[in-house]
């Protein structure tokens, strides 16, 4: 029997993987991919919770759809920034962008 706990555990594991990727990866493309994993972890949690707890309104499923749209928009902007960074610096590494260092 697959319970809500299983889904949430999957979501938590995916979230941790994504977080690990965002913090440790130096390549901007890898970072964006990790962000995708984060978003999908959240989407799984929403959809699963709704499926078990809210069979009437499907609000969690709706949120999952929203997250997909947001993820698409975020990716397009992220890639635009990435392209500009690459043109500007000749590299797609996160640590070349450090003008904001204190």
């Amino acid at each position: 029997m697959i319970t809500l706990g299983h889904f949430l555990a999957l979501s938590a594991v995916l979230f941790a993987i994504g977080l690990f990727g965002v913090i440790t990866r130096r390549n901007l493309i890898a970072v964006l991919m990790s962000v995708e994993i984060l978003l999908n972890a959240a989407a799984i949690a929403f959809a699963a919770t709704a499926a078990y707890k809210d069979p009437v309104f499907f609000s969690g499923q709706l949120f999952a759809l929203f997250i997909m749209v947001v993820a698409a928009a975020e990716l397009s902007i992220g890639f635009a920034i990435l392209l500009n960074v690459f043109r500007h610096t000749g590299s797609a590494a996160t640590d070349v962008v450090e003008e904001m260092r204190g």
Partner: peptide, 18 residues
């Protein structure tokens, strides 16, 4: 005194958020 917190590394900032 708090200058070192602002490293300029995006990853560090993400860690702060977490």
């Amino acid at each position: 005194a708090l200058r070192w917190l602002n490293s300029g590394k995006v990853a560090t900032y993400a860690a702060y958020i977490v």
